[in-house]
Structure formats: structure tokens, C-alpha cells
Nucleic acid binder design. Sequence first.
DNA 1: TTGTAGGCGTTATCAC
DNA 2: GTGATAACGCCTACAA
Lengths: 326, 326
Amino acid sequence: MSGTMKDLAKYTGYSLGTISNYISGKVPVSEQKGNRIEQAIKELGYTVNMAARVLKTNSFQCIGVLIPSFSNQFLLQVSKYIERILRTYGYDMLVTSYNDDTENFYKQLRNLSQKTDGILCVPRPDVDYRIIAEEQKKVPIVMFDETTNEMVCDRVLVDNEKIVENVIDMLIHQGRTKIGFIAGKKRAYTTLQRKRGYENAFKRNGIPINETLMTYGTYEKKSGYLGFQKIRISNPDITDVFVVGYRMTLGVLAAVKAAGLEHEISIIGYDAYDISDTVDIKLGYIYQPYQEIAQMAVKLMMRRVNGDDKDFPTTVIINAELRMGS
Amino acid sequence: MSGTMKDLAKYTGYSLGTISNYISGKVPVSEQKGNRIEQAIKELGYTVNMAARVLKTNSFQCIGVLIPSFSNQFLLQVSKYIERILRTYGYDMLVTSYNDDTENFYKQLRNLSQKTDGILCVPRPDVDYRIIAEEQKKVPIVMFDETTNEMVCDRVLVDNEKIVENVIDMLIHQGRTKIGFIAGKKRAYTTLQRKRGYENAFKRNGIPINETLMTYGTYEKKSGYLGFQKIRISNPDITDVFVVGYRMTLGVLAAVKAAGLEHEISIIGYDAYDISDTVDIKLGYIYQPYQEIAQMAVKLMMRRVNGDDKDFPTTVIINAELRMGS
DNA sequence: TTGTAGGCGTTATCAC
DNA sequence: GTGATAACGCCTACAA
């Protein structure tokens, strides 16, 4: 237990008010006393007691970020930018993962709502929106990347439907129509969007949709691996695979390699920018602009935190882009 | 602002003490009153005010984890286990990154020491140990993975020297002596250990050490790429590369591939377990047991948090192992 | 500019 | 079991 303001007051002989004024910096204090207080702080090893300050001011100067898993490269990357941007606003960031578990999601949400002034979260599709709504009464909540439909809530999302549609359309125009699609979790918002984009492209080109070319996954490497195998059983003539997420892309790569199809198949993976030049397989990737997502989410959150709710609920849509491996 | 205990007291007509007793669960309360309070909680939307509780109890039931970067797969993986294990002790986890910046490290350390009961951190080599010592007066600090030498501090470390020595020795016995070594940051503890292991192996086998086979890196992919190129200029006959960290391994893979040397060179990468089966290059990896590291770190921290300092400072050493790609 | 006093929401210590 | 009351450390009027 380190010293308190009271200790400083006793030590210097000044009043508590003067000490507080000096430390908060909001009310000027004579230089002489300032110096003496400064010295006392060093002497007694004083540090502000955040709990007390928060209790009094009811403000944490801190925003929570809640993501499904620490294995998600993309979200961690976004978080990194969120942290930087928040700092320019004088806010700290607290990251928490709910480990892909719904109950844990609720728990962490409650937890963060006790420790922060607002929460940026990536929800699961199966969360009970009423629980979120309940928390939302206490602190502003902005969803990013994923969302749930039932909720009235601020959102920052990527236009998954459009980018997928465009990419698949491009492939079709190149005469490649046997395109496997390994999506994320079945009910996830992003999955639905991407699936729609995939289907749109085929419809647009008057090609019937082959359900056996599609499958879902868990974002784990293994499920990418298995997904590819499953699709290939029904479609030995498959030429392209579109796969969502870094780790599932790794899985597909491994499966393609294990099947000795490195030169027959090309892959387009979400967020696979890191590995496109390390493998022999042709690999393009969808780039989701981390920084812009972070920027928009923080901006919106800062407005909410400062009581500006005039356009609530608002949804910001951000464009992704296709990039090819070197 | 949601309801408080005082509101509950007013609403139910019971005293503050009874409300508190019921909510903390530490003192039994008659069932009838319990039910009534439960109902009042729902009615008024009461939630504990953590700040007030912390102020009073001086305990956060929360441990902070401070890592250099959210890009570090390995540390994030360890954090995931830390979180799980902490939960079994009834503690939460807060993760923070200092973005490879020393000043930021200090800042986050101070920050966490205000929000948690103890800090598990991965320090930079150049941190001023006095600042850590200062924080350590307030909360227990356990270093893991990395450490600084000057500090009197608890540590949970991997035996990098031994594993590297063994792996290099094995290669030498296979007649492969042109082994490149791309280490991490120059002054880092882990780097020094690994370098020593590398050198030991050569000494042990009576082979002179070739400095041009060694270089440092920043753990970024690019620095792995450049590191390989640099080493190869002086050593066109290089047959093996030992490289530290997931991303730098990716860089080496890309460089080897760019040079068309997929079949001449084999690579051993730290923590590269994810990609070993996706590339055509022979790739082994060092596996650092995440779970065990997390377990040891948490165990030690829990003892410190509970005031058991009898073996302070203590250092736990954990063994890594070599695994080969599928 | 400086000091005093009251209260933020909780827990802990008493009596009853 | 229950109720009153006093802290915990800080901030903020308001008064001096």
C-alpha cells in the first residue's frame, strides 16, 4: 500500500485540497508548494489510487475491446491500431477474449462494463441480444467486424458481400467456375454476407449454384484442411478455393499440398497476406483495412462516450480489396 | 448510472448491511429477504460498482499481462492459457501490449499496477530495472519468456540455450555445418541464450564459429527475409537456417523461395508449428510448451499475490522441444 | 491561492 | 440475522 494524498498533506503540512489541486493540475498551486509536494511524492512513493478516482469521477478513461479469440490475427491487428488511436484521445485500451464461448462472452462483457467507459466488441452470432442491450444501458457498445441482426447497436463492418461477389465474379470471367468456398461459422453475420456474395456472382453469370462446393468452418486450421477434403470428394475437378481467415487458409494450403495439387489449384484467402509469398500454391488474399476499421470504431466510440448519440444507431461500412501474392 | 446498494436498501426497507451481506454472500441472510433483494436487484438493474469494491477491499481479483506486441503469436497463445488458468483461481486477466516501445512499457506497467493485483510481463532488454523495481513495491511482478539480468525478480523462462545447442549439435552430426542463425533483438535475454547455445554446439564439435552465419532481427517478417539474404551473400553454400519467431520464419521461407532454393535449404523455426506442412521447404520447429509456461507463471503469481514470498526471487526453467514438419 | 467538508458505493465492525 | 456507522482515497464545491 503506497502513500495517499492524506499522507502527502500530513507530510508537507498543506491541506488535502492543495495536494489534490496540485496533482490534478486543474487548480494552480504556488510553485514553492508544488516543489515541496513533488518531493513528498517521491519520498512517500505516492501514486493515485485509480479505484478512488473512478469511484469519484465515474470515468475510467479506458475503452474495452472484446474479441472471440487471441488466435485471430486480424482482430488482434485491428486492436493494435485501436490502442494507438485511443491513446491520441487520452484513453487506454483493455483487450479481452471470450474464447469462442457464449457464456464467457457475457461474462467478459459485464466485466468490461465495470472497468471501462465503452466496449468495442466482436459478437458471436448466437448471443442473446437482450443481454447486450442490458449492458448497453450502462456503457456504449460498438460492434465491429461481426454483428448480430436483432440488436439496435452501432456497428463498423466490412462490406464482405461486395468483395466476395467481385472476386468470384472475376474468377468466373476467367473461366474458372469450380470454386470451392470454405466459410466461417454457420450463423455468423460475416459468413452470411460472404455466402451471399458468392451466390450473387454465380447468379449474375447465370450459373447454377453447386452446394457441394460450399462448407462451413471454425476458423481453426484443421477445419480448413477438412473443408477442402470434403469439397474435393464431391468435386474432383475443383480449380479454386475461396477460404475465410488466416488459419483456415493454412489448413487449405496443407490439404492441397498433401493432395499434391499445388499446381492445379489456386487459393484466395481472407487476411492471408503473410504467407502468400512463402508457398508454391497460387495464393491471393482479401485485405481488410485494419487501420480504417480501427479508426472508424474509435471515432464512433469517442462520440458515444462524450454523449453524442444523435445518429444512434449508426452503421459504418468499409471496403475490402483483393490483392495477389507476389 | 445503475442502482446502488443504497437504492436496494431503500427499495426493500432493509439495511445497507443486509444488502451487502447478501450480495457478497459472506454472511448468511434469511431466505425471505434474499428473495426480496434478488427481485429488487432485477427491478433496479443493480450491478456492483467495482471501483467502490476495489477501493474498499484493495483487491482487484485480476492479473495483468504485459507483452511487447499483439503480433507475437507465441505470447498470445501463452496468454490464452494464462487466462484459463487464472479463471480457475477466480481471477480475471487483462492483456496489454507495449508495442515494442520502452516508454510505453513503463506506462503500461504503471497502468496495470493500478488495475491489477499482479503483473506477468515480457520485458524489453533495455528497460530500466529501477522502474520495474519501483512498481514491484506495489504489486508482484513475474517475468516470463524474456527477462532482464539486473533485476531481482521472479521468472519463468524457457531453456533456450539447451534446446538450440541440441538442435544445432544434431545438425552438425548429420554433417550439416553451414547453419545460418537469425536471432531476435540483439540485447534480448532469449537472443543471448540462443546465441550461446548455437556457439556451444560448434565449440563442442571443435568447429570454428563463422560470424557471417549469424545475424539479428526484429521478429518482423521482413527482417527474416533480409537476414537470410544477408547471410547468404557471405555463405552461398549455406544448407540450413535456424530462425527465431513465427514471422521471421515466414520471411526466411519467402526469401528461400524467392531465391529458388526450396530444395537446397532446410529451416528450423521457433514456434513455426502452423506452417510446417504448408510449404515445400523442409521445416522443423521448436515447440515451447505454452500451457506449462502459463501454468508455472500463474502458479507463482498466485503464491505472490497471497503473500507467500518465501522463495523470492525464484526462477522456473522450462524445456522446449524440437518437432519436425509433417 | 488555500483549506474544509461532504460524499462517491462498498465493506467491516460493532452492537443488538 | 440484522442494522447503524465508520472508513477506503479521491474530488469538488464553497468558504476563507
